[in-house]
Amino acid sequence: MALPAAFHDIAKRVNNWGRWGEDDEIGTLNLITDEVVRAAAGTVRRGLRVPLALELKEDGVQTGMIPGRVNPLHVMVQVNQELFGPGTVATSDDAVTFGLQAATHWDALTHASHSGRIYNGRPASSITPHGRSAFSGIHTARHVVSRGVLLDVARAKGLDRLPGNHAVTPEDLDEAAEFGRVTVGAGDVVLVRTGQVRQYLAGDKHGYGYPSPGLSVRTPEWFHARDVAAVANDTLTFEIFPPEIEDLWLPVHALDLVEMGMLQGQNWNLEELSTACAQEERYAFLLSAMPEPFVGGTGTPVAPVAVL
């Protein structure tokens, strides 16, 4: 089924192809300038560090809904092995196999395509089984350190968690920004809290994934208008699931990643950060969220930390 005209209308309004040159591979990360990072460092007052990643473990968030996206399969390949003979120093080593988007992660710009294209108008056929992503692989996103802004949509509404059928709208984002007394600006990394990860943390990983609140197809224009560098939230699918528009699956992925060239992150644990920001009465902070540089990867695990 072809994407509807309404989708293409939004795509035209948020499109960034060519904005940073025809050879650009990092999209809105170009908005994280030296000046932005210096200003972000100035938000640190206490040095309070808040981790935002879920644990990587064999019984993690993946349920098999997405074929091949497996939770970490962790094996020991050495256990107290004396490599250089009896009585020498012993070492232990391990190995892991898992989906790069298995837990807390960034989606690379190549994670989604539509109409045969990826970001900056390149052909989707440039992603191949053995060559992986020839352009805009996650290894090109070399620096994701900026001002982070928590838009705590759930707390702004007086809720622990948004209902499963709640599509987060631009109006919700405005409400959360006003609640946090923060103005989203160029180069910011926006974290949108729905509270949905509470389902997973409580042991209900099937309920965590479906049904799930998430971003509305209307939100890409909100982020585009503010020159946001990246967006992450605390859900499995990022956007509302099942979709708000019948049979229009993953439109926000296509608008963010393909049209805007904006990294998006999923499965971020924003619960401790929500509490910390409420206690500190401030919702902006220094955020370090460096991608693991898997060459050609369409995504990567990340262990983000907010510093207040």
Rank of each mutant, 00 (worst) to 15 (best):
M1W: 09
A11K: 09
N15M: 08
N16K: 07
G27T: 04
G27S: 03
L29I: 09
L31N: 09
D34G: 12
R38P: 00
R46V: 05
P51K: 10
A53P: 02
E55W: 02
E58G: 14
D59Q: 09
D59T: 09
V61A: 10
Q62C: 06
G64A: 04
P67T: 10
N71A: 07
H74I: 13
V79M: 08
L83Q: 11
T91A: 14
S92N: 01
D93T: 12
V96G: 03
L100Q: 08
L100M: 14
A103E: 14
A108D: 06
T110F: 03
Y119G: 01
H130A: 12
R132E: 09
S136E: 14
V145W: 01
V149D: 00
V149R: 00
V149F: 01
A156L: 05
L159N: 04
L159R: 12
D160T: 12
R161P: 07
T169D: 13
E171K: 13
D174M: 07
D174F: 09
R181D: 14
T183P: 00
V189D: 00
G195F: 05
V197E: 08
Q199I: 00
L201F: 11
P213Q: 03
L215C: 12
R218V: 00
P220A: 08
A225L: 08
D227E: 15
A229D: 05
A229Q: 05
D234S: 05
F241M: 12
F241N: 15
P243R: 07
E246D: 13
D247A: 15
L248F: 13
V252R: 05
E259G: 04
M260A: 05
N269L: 03
E281A: 14
S288V: 13
S288H: 11
E292G: 11
V295E: 13
P301T: 06
V302R: 01
P304H: 10
P304K: 10
A306H: 04
